[in-house]
Computed example of a mutant assay.
Amino acid sequence: MTTAKSSWQIWIDRGGTFTDLVAKTPDGSLVTHKLLSENPERYTDAAVQGVRDLMGLSPGQSIPPGSIQNVKMGTTVATNALLERKGDRTVLAITQGFGDALRIGYQNRPFLFARHIVLPEMLYETVVEIPERVGAHGDIVVALDESVARRKLQAAFDDGIRSVAIAFAHGYRYHAHEERVAEIAEDIGFSQISVSHRVSPLMKLVSRGDTAVVDAYLSPLLRRYVDQVADDLNAEGNSAGPRLMFMQSNGGLTDARMFQGKDAILSGPAGGVVGMARTAVMAGFDKVIGFDMGGTSTDVSHFDGEYERRFETVVAGVRLRA
């Protein structure tokens, strides 16, 4: 069994432009390293290459099993994919009659006197309205038409879409229709199925639907990245491999296998806030303003002695909820 005294511990901040690493060596000393996040002529992934550099390994050389105890990582992979709209093609399945609900949103006017309103681009490519409706108290207003659901989802699948977000009215409380359509989507072959009552089990169709769409849009890209890193670090299913954990938007760590798109949007920035706050407290300051400027995005934060949490937010024009 790998022990902390005989192995490396590594912390990584994978940004859009640079990747920074801090590591504790087996002898207890701290070392740092910095490299470009994108340099395809030299390496496929900056985080893994940074680990190799710190350990004195050549590019492409396998990381020795048992040499690393754990890797804890914050990343802006999902953040930048959202900013640059580089997620996977997604279809939204929603209650019939509500096809424009997410587009309409809440009709907020952040700039009250603006004459030219520019609406954010929707993340889903297409929407399919499913005949179904459950009332607020669980009564079946319209029975689920499974044949229509299958036909419409099959058409989206045949068009090359592999991610689906499912959000039905009152689905946060009454799950049966969402669950059944998820089963149909799985049977058709969708590789990413984000169901609103699992992703954000709270009332309000718009914010719940938006969060499900974000999850469907980003999770495949994030999963490919996480799997690649885990494979290169020998972390996936290997008892001698390191424990790989990722920073979530809520400031906490989660196992790589549990890391989802909707929890990754502020992974990097959240790590910066936590690091800033802890460092400031150690230095005797309890009121701090943080300025985290990267090559792709800049984040500003403040800390007033305790962490403040927001359960609904807007990132790159996209509404999100915890």
Rank of each mutant, 00 (worst) to 15 (best):
V118A: 10
L233D: 15
H116M: 10
V134W: 07
T25H: 05
A280F: 12
D215P: 00
R180F: 06
E178I: 00
S29A: 00
E146T: 09
Y307T: 01
D45R: 06
V315Y: 06
V229N: 06
S267G: 08
G251N: 03
E132D: 10
G189Q: 14
L35Q: 06
G295C: 03
P242Q: 00
D286Y: 08
A169Q: 15
V195E: 07
E132I: 13
L202D: 14
G237Y: 06
S7M: 04
N250Q: 11
A277R: 04
A264Y: 10
V288N: 09
Q154M: 13
E38A: 07
S163D: 06
Q69I: 13
A46K: 04
D292G: 01
M258R: 00
L222I: 09
H175Y: 05
V199R: 11
H177Q: 15
E236I: 08
L54H: 11
A47S: 04
T90Y: 13
P242C: 01
E178T: 11
D299I: 01
S301G: 10
N70G: 10
T254V: 13
L57A: 01
I63E: 05
K86D: 11
D263R: 13
E84A: 01
A169I: 15
P201E: 03
H302K: 14
T298G: 05
P201N: 08
S191G: 14
M1T: 12
S6E: 15
L244Y: 01
G135W: 05
K72Q: 14
G60H: 01
K287F: 13
S29K: 11
L253S: 10
M293K: 04
Q9W: 13
E121S: 05
S7P: 05
N238W: 10
I104G: 04
T25I: 11
I289L: 12
T254D: 10
V48Q: 02
F190V: 08
K5D: 14
K24R: 15
D158S: 05
E41Y: 12
G271E: 03
D88Q: 11
G171E: 06
V22D: 09
R224S: 14
T313W: 10
E129G: 11
D187I: 09
D215M: 05
G271P: 03
R89Q: 09
L83V: 07
G138W: 11
E146I: 06
L233E: 07
T25P: 06
V141T: 08
Q248N: 10
Q69W: 12
L21N: 04
V134L: 05
N238R: 09
M1W: 05
T211M: 02
T298H: 04
D13I: 03
S267I: 00
S191N: 13
E38P: 01
T76S: 15
V142M: 14
Q248W: 07
P269F: 00
V281T: 15
P220I: 03
V51H: 02
N238H: 05
R173W: 14
G66F: 12
V51R: 00
Q192D: 09
L36P: 03
S196G: 12
T19L: 03
D145Q: 11
F285D: 12
D20F: 12
A270S: 14
